[in-house]
């Protein structure tokens, strides 16, 4: 039986899916109207009086003044160009040394230009040739750039999760590290970490990439499992199919066979990352191979792996240490 009915309700109904639909229908969404808060607390108001408008304007002015004062007192974060080669441009105009890159501006380099940026005391970023990027946020608690094309090299001293790079395939979230990040014209991003850890995230997928490892991300899919770059070429090619060949289950299964055969003890990290990416029926042989490379800790069984259970104790055996999560844990970036 195919899964057309599960997919879009077409084809022969699957009796079990139908039964679940019937059972679970009782939990369905039934609240068609939004209950607006009282007008005083809602930003959506109607026909405010002139007096209220003046009061609101005064309040806004005071608030803005307060914010500016606070920024002066606490130190605003600025992106300053500290080095230039060739003719990089900001919003179409030639960029110069000591110029500030502001939120919303687009920075571009051509084939012969490069830029070096200093982010106050939070880090440095080098922008390579043929790159295009935008500054999205620049506050003490959140730095965010969007890398549309090209390569950047970042050395970040900011606390974990303060420095984010948005690429077409994933967010690269710094956890105290140095790395290079490249986005190809096709939107594929390739991350290589030299110091510390980088957390790659998109939708449901997450990859923590340690020093010495790399990971690709693809638009619409997200990050693949990280790998150490000294893995065999065959291993890396097969891993690409396992990571991103979502359309062909058989090809992915065959590729997994190559990955398992070529895996070295150092590649245990990659294999652990694959449990959430392979088909459930492949988890057993993934467990078997990994158990040979890195014996599982007490309490982690083959059945745990097949069931998709938490394998955290196995991660701890890798000896890679734990990435710093910062004083306050993962960032509280405002939506």
């Amino acid at each position: 039986m195919n899964d057309d009915y599960l997919w879009d309700g077409s084809g022969t109904p699957d009796p079990e899916v139908e039964q679940l639909e019937k059972q679970l229908g009782r939990f369905q969404y039934t609240q068609p109207k939004f209950e607006f808060p009282v007008a005083a607390t809602s930003p959506l108001y109607t026909r405010p009086s002139r007096k209220r408008l003046w009061l609101a304007a005064a309040a806004v002015a005071m608030l803005l003044g307060g914010i500016l004062l606070m920024r002066e007192l606490t130190g605003r974060v600025e992106w300053t160009i500290t080095g230039v080669q060739g003719s990089p441009r900001i919003d179409g105009k030639i960029a110069a040394r000591n110029q500030t890159w502001k939120i919303g501006e687009r920075l571009e380099t051509d084939a012969a230009s490069r830029v070096q940026l200093q982010v106050d005391d939070l880090g440095q970023v080098e922008v390579g040739p043929n790159a295009r990027l935008e500054l999205m946020q620049a506050s003490v608690t959140q730095q965010q750039i969007r890398l549309l094309r090209g390569t950047i090299r970042a050395k970040v001293t900011a606390p974990p999760y303060v420095f984010l790079v948005r690429t077409p395939g994933a967010y690269a979230m710094d956890m105290g590290c140095a790395y290079t990040l490249q986005v190809t014209d096709g939107g594929v991003s390739i991350l290589r970490v030299s110091v510390g850890w980088v957390d790659l995230q998109h939708g449901f997928l997450q990859s923590l990439v340690p020093a010495g490892a790399a990971a690709e991300s693809r638009p619409g899919i997200g990050p693949g499992a990280p790998y150490f770059e000294d893995a065999s070429e065959q291993f890396r090619e097969a891993l690409e199919t396992v990571n991103f060949g979502a359309e062909n289950s058989q090809a992915r299964s065959e590729a997994l066979t190559i990955v398992l055969a070529d895996a070295r003890p150092r590649d245990a990290y990659t294999l652990l990352n694959l449990f959430r990416r392979v088909d459930p029926e492949d988890r057993g042989r993934l467990y078997d191979r990994l158990a040979l490379l890195l014996p599982p800790p007490a309490g982690v069984t083959r059945q745990n792996a097949v069931d998709g259970d938490d394998l955290s104790p196995w991660w701890d055996k890798l000896g890679l240490g734990h990435p710093k999560k910062g004083q306050h844990g993962p960032p509280r970036i405002e939506e």
């Binding site: 923590l208 955290s312 990435p323």
Partner: peptide, 20 residues
């Protein structure tokens, strides 16, 4: 580690749906 880390879902603006 990966399995236990809190998910960071507090993204200001998630990537645009490619198939919308």
């Amino acid at each position: 580690m990966v399995a236990t880390l809190d998910r960071v879902l507090l993204i200001r603006e998630a990537p645009m749906p490619a198939n919308h």
